[in-house]
Design a protein around this nucleic acid. Structure first.
Lengths: 264, 264
DNA sequence: AGCCACTTGTGAACGAATGCACAAAGTGGC
DNA sequence: GCCACTTTGTGCATTCGTTCACAAGTGGCT
């Protein structure tokens, strides 16, 4: 509804679909963390920081050295106050009257997001989606090398996909431990997802991205992020219905019979 | 951190990267909406309703007729109070002392989410991901028939993918209008995304799912949901870093040298 | 019929996230 | 060296979302 309307999450996010939560680090009355200022960064802000980082990388490539919160906010699709607040969670790296230096922000956001180390990723389920993920060049370049692939299909095991041979899902715990996988991506059919998840956890993986339309049950120390296209579509559907309703209510559905509105 | 820990959004909630917002329908002092009670349903609740719907469908297939909020909540990975509140937004369809009838809930959630009509989907960008989406059987069966495919590549135009011939992206506005596409899915490389988005909008599409890692600029009446794997990975990376930090702080990193923690 | 055990639906308290508005801090011009 | 201008960083009010806790209803049992 705001002027600068961006996108939502998925909540993500939530949503987008956000099971809200603070990322507070209780850190009892122990002194303060020596380096890494990093106190309580709201979950939502973390997601946005990742977006800022991408926008900033693009800016850096274009040779932009300095920019104001207003400019960055516009490019990231958020309002400038929110942007400044988000940045303030990670420290004070701007110069009043001037703005921010792109390279500094990039460095700091990378530091906070833990991108100074690289995190090996395992993809489980080499179907259409798994293939796409295994071949996608965007991750290795951003510090997320795909270091293991798994599938049940015996015909697929051993076959290299995107330069990496596929292993059998029974070997998930062993291989994950060996290759120090930190993030598991589940791209299997729904029925297999929970079993795969359990094996990933057994292999020491504590971070999972789940593309399967299932609610995974995991121990407390494991973090799951869900990506569910069906849910996204249904959320959009809801808003379509909402819009249609409001038109019917204040009468005069602007000439659209039912369904898609063509004009505006 | 709660006991029943589920997943987050992609807010996409957060998600994932959620630009929070109410779904309030101002509906001035006009009487009350005649049918469709549907007043202000929080964005986050809508995302969860979609999840409940999926869980409930599974239950229905298993022949479950009735269940309590507690049971459904457990299966959906949320706490039961939240679940009941979410359901209360759409009306009172439970029976005190007994619980909910699965089929009733399914019907009502489908009604609220606008799933009584089907919504035609267009997929733009028939690369690895686009292929996966075009072939994925999960959407048609849930009321989201894929009715158009687009790509720039002339070699691909005309070729049927998943039974549907690919059209050229220049024809997006025309084809979308003709086939009454209500949802566009962008699966192109980042550089092409904004142009594709503009054409979808020109074709009357007011709901977009964007897989390209770009912030799309759209007019106010268009709704964009972003699905960004890189962001998801970075959020997980953040939490990994957080966890590692806290271990170093209260001393005694349980025998892990640096990086992945194997035990627990 | 009356009581008991159970489960929903929701008011109200709490907590998190957003947006506003301004003081603080720096720059460049004169 | 001072002033006018710009832009950050943040306290505060507000809005949005989650959780608690309990009254109100329902079915089963005696």
């Amino acid at each position: 509804m705001a002027a600068a309307r961006g996108q939502r999450g998925g909540d993500r996010d939530v949503p987008a679909a956000p099971n809200a939560a603070e990322v507070t680090m209780p850190i009892p009355p122990v002194s303060d963390t020596p380096m890494q200022r990093a106190r309580a960064i709201p979950e939502a802000a973390v997601a946005r920081l990742a977006v800022y980082l991408r926008v900033l990388s693009g800016m850096a490539e274009q040779g932009i050295v300095t920019l104001s919160s207003e400019e960055l906010a516009a490019a990231a699709g958020v309002n400038s106050a929110k942007l400044r607040k988000d940045l303030s969670y990670i420290g004070s790296y701007g110069t009043r009257g001037v703005g921010y230096e792109v390279s500094v922000l990039v460095d700091q956001i990378e530091r906070i997001l833990g991108l100074t180390r690289s995190h090996s990723v395992a993809v489980v389920g080499i179907g259409n989606l798994g293939h796409a993920l295994a071949n996608y060049g965007g991750f290795p370049s951003r510090g997320f090398p795909v270091a293991a692939l798994f599938d049940v299909d015996p015909d697929l095991v051993g076959v290299p996909v995107g330069g990496l041979p596929v292993s059998h899902i029974d070997d998930i715990p062993k291989v994950c431990a060996e290759r120090e996988i930190s993030i598991g991506v589940i791209a299997t059919p729904p029925a297999a997802a929970q079993a795969v998840c359990d094996r990933l956890v057994a292999g020491g993986v504590a971070s999972i991205v789940n593309f399967a339309p299932v609610v995974l049950q995991v121990p407390d120390h494991v973090e799951v992020r869900k990506v569910d296209l069906a849910v996204e579509l249904q959320i959009l559907s809801f808003h379509v219905a909402r819009r249609a309703d409001s038109m019917n209510v204040n009468g005069s559905a602007l000439g659209n019979v039912d369904g898609v509105v063509i004009g505006r």
